[in-house]
């Protein structure tokens, strides 16, 4: 079943972004292709989530453009900017469900705010979306009553409730056990099958997840894009950092920065204090 016809490419042109004076991403130009699952990879603190915040429109770039379907997101007038935002579904790291609302109310929120659907229709959609993520039995529960994995799935249901053509996920599998992570991957693949025109962008550093679902991969390192292309191309790379990343190899000693050895006397004292001896 196809729900939208337009495929939304996400293009970044000379994007420089950061917080205050601190630059996290510098002069990045890339395209995240529409209708595919793009995975943004990189080490912790390399700017993956910052990139996502730019695409969502939560932070404006210091320089450069974010183009959605060819239109400059941050140059849009307020009404058009808001209309564009409604075309996005976002899954935050911990789901970001509103704690004062039940799961059902959370999923229904965008529909109740932006549509004049009858309550029965809203309930039907909510149940459908929750059943897609296997949580149809949780409508009356509060987010605090769910496990981390369930909160993420409920967050995904909320992100999908308006059938958005663009789905953005911030670390969808982080903190999940292998079975829940595989379930989340399967859900994203199912979304791609159900909605072939949907552009899905996931920020992650979970290589298993990348291997399972990625059509397109973008790797960030030291403020720059150091790789963009298919998973197949990534696996054939010869770049040292990428090889290290793919092989889960630890940093070399010279890359780790300053070293502070612990004296034996301090260690022995600590153990005595902790009654380990």
């Amino acid at each position: 079943m196809t729900i939208t016809t337009q495929v939304w490419d996400i293009a970044l042109e000379g994007l420089t972004a950061g917080y205050g004076p601190k630059v996290v991403l510098e002069n990045i130009s890339t395209v995240l292709p529409g209708g595919k699952i793009s995975m943004v990879l990189g080490g912790s603190g390399c700017g993956k989530s910052t990139l996502l915040r730019q695409i969502i429109g939560l932070s404006a770039p210091m320089e450069g453009k974010v183009l959605l379907g060819g239109n400059d997101f941050f140059a849009m007038k307020d009404a058009e900017f808001r209309r564009m935002r409604r075309r996005m579904g976002v899954l935050f790291q911990d789901g970001a469900l509103l704690g004062s609302l039940t799961v059902g109310e959370n999923i229904a929120l965008p529909l109740r705010e932006h549509t004049h659907l009858k309550e029965a229709e809203v309930q039907e959609i909510v149940l459908h979306k929750l059943s897609l993520v296997g949580l149809a039995h949780t409508t009356a529960l509060y987010p605090s009553q769910l496990s981390g994995g369930m909160r993420k799935r409920a967050g995904l249901a909320r992100a999908l409730v308006t059938d958005p053509p663009i789905l953005l996920c911030d670390e969808p599998t982080s903190g999940l056990d292998p079975i829940s992570a595989a379930q989340m991957d399967a859900l994203l693949l199912e979304m791609r099958e159900r909605f072939p025109s949907m552009t899905i962008v996931c920020v992650s550093h979970d290589m298993e997840s990348v291997k399972a679902i990625a059509d397109h991969v973008l790797v960030l390192h030291e403020k720059q894009v150091i790789f963009q292309g298919s998973l197949h191309n990534l696996q054939e790379t010869t770049k040292p950092y990428l090889l290290q990343f793919l092989a889960r190899a630890p940093m070399r000693e010279e890359e780790q920065g300053a070293s502070y050895p612990l004296s034996e006397a301090t260690r022995a004292h600590m153990h005595r204090e902790l009654e380990l001896q």
């Binding site: 939560l58 935002r85 996005m88 970001a96 469900l97 704690g99 705010e113």
Partner: peptide, 20 residues
């Protein structure tokens, strides 16, 4: 406290991206 918790747990950002 309630609004502060909503801020640090991305709930306010979630409202914004839902265009609320």
């Amino acid at each position: 406290a309630e609004i502060g918790v909503m801020r640090i747990s991305d709930q306010i950002d979630a409202l914004e991206v839902m265009d609320i």
